[in-house]
Design a protein around this nucleic acid. Structure first.
Lengths: 247, 247
DNA sequence: CGTAGTATTGAAACGGATCAATATCTGTGG
DNA sequence: CCACAGATATTGATCCGTTTCAATACTACG
């Protein structure tokens, strides 16, 4: 598979292709929605260190346990972080979307494998170069701290989801999360579901069949309608929210 | 309930009662075990901002949704972060032990409630003062980034645990985690279980009864022995590890 | 237009939740 | 020091929903 890479150039034009991150800050702000954190200056700085890559769907970015050479920024598309268990089961620990980062190592190695779900545009920076910058630019380091704190909240939210026993409820919570991510898109009742059923199953720790049945149930109950396999319309928002909260 | 607080004094003696944090760094090191991250100088600096508090067991530190005034450091004891769900169920998102931090806000509010499990000694620093320091001292900010990244891994590991369907396996993985935390104690086969069965149930998203049965099963199978309710001895390490890995 | 991966549907079995009863522990006051 | 009360934990029986196995349908891509 061909991987396109290109060194980004510094300067004003570079912002079109400079890394960025999105998170909810610590402090109380005007909006609860996550915001872009980096200043143009910071982005330009990172851009001088970053390489851009454009990847096709279902391409492995790196494997679990590999040497953590790079830290990645998602610019476009969706990727998944996952682990394969001894039993052959696969656990998706996170879906990463534009504004997310991944590849922060532990002990010099990646802890999850990462694979593109859709076509994706990423930036990558050498781990050492990034940590050098972070150790020198306190404001930038602080932005990253906000981001990782946010990711921690996300992981905790997933434990809440997995704590539910009913497949319908887990699926509804998952779709609710997707909806927040995609908020600001054209039709507010449309949720784009970019990943496959079995990716969802791996994320929700359900069998593929259970996900399939849950989708059908929610549809026959009139809560959702599937325009196609990757597009859901919320047809009864009240019951949708009630199902999400009912745990 | 009486809460003892005391402003720490700066200077050399302050290290006896200065905040500290523990985490596995990004880079490959000599040991895989988490290490103390802060330098004496950094600790002294934090000590000038910190207040020490000593809390009895089962004392609420703060509630979910409260204004995030303070960031906390665990010096001694165990506390739990949790959320109460509409159904009345309680989900423990994390047990926090010495070297851990908690109270990093999202949008100015705490996202979990926190309560002591055992008697505990904490340090607290005003959120604004801490963030000010972090924005000025890049090395310190970087240490915090390592720490939060570590916590993110921990949360991801918990999603792996919750992904398992069998109560015995979940319990075994939980005990395995506890064992790592307590490693370096006298008898390597003894795991101190400082929390109650129902805390464990809330953490593992199991019913109290399921936890109870799982403990009994592991004991009757000869994998563990309960010296008392809060002390487990691993009697068959091979099968213990196999059970942990079998997922 | 075929083929491999992806998804749906059905039937049976397993395992945890729940309800209910009982046991044990812990801390308090007599 | 003991007895008691409230919280914590154990054990049993039934129910329900998900897993698993199996067969079939769909769909995207070359």
């Amino acid at each position: 598979v061909t991987v396109l890479t290109r060194k980004t150039t510094s300067g004003l034009r570079a912002l079109d292709s400079a890394p960025w991150i999105r998170a909810t800050p610590f402090r109380k702000g005007v909006s609860e929605l996550p915001a872009r954190l980096l200043t143009d200056l910071q982005r330009q700085h990172l851009a001088t260190l970053a390489t851009r890559l454009h990847l096709p769907p279902r391409k492995i970015v790196y494997r679990e346990g590999a040497d953590a050479t790079w830290v990645f920024f998602v610019a476009e598309g969706v990727v998944k972080a996952f682990r394969d268990l001894p039993s052959g089961k696969r656990r998706v620990t996170a879906f990463l979307v534009p504004g997310d980062i991944f590849g922060l190592a532990e002990n010099g190695q990646y802890v999850n494998a990462v694979r593109t779900v859709t076509e994706a545009t990423l930036f990558r920076i050498r781990t050492e170069e990034l940590t050098d910058v972070l150790r020198r630019d306190p404001e930038l380091g602080f932005q990253f701290l906000c981001k990782v704190t946010n990711d921690l909240r996300r992981a905790q939210r997933q434990t809440i989801v997995l704590g539910r026993r009913d497949a319908r409820g887990r699926l509804a919570m998952f779709l609710g999360i997707l909806e927040k991510h995609a908020s600001g898109k054209s039709d507010p009742d449309i949720i784009p579901v970019l990943m496959s059923r079995s990716d969802i199953a791996d994320y929700l720790a359900l069998s593929l069949e259970a996900v399939s049945r849950a989708t059908r149930e929610l549809a026959t109950e009139g809560i959702l309608r599937f325009e196609d396999r990757h597009t859901v319309r919320v047809t009864d928002r009240r019951r949708f929210q009630r199902l999400i909260a009912a745990n």
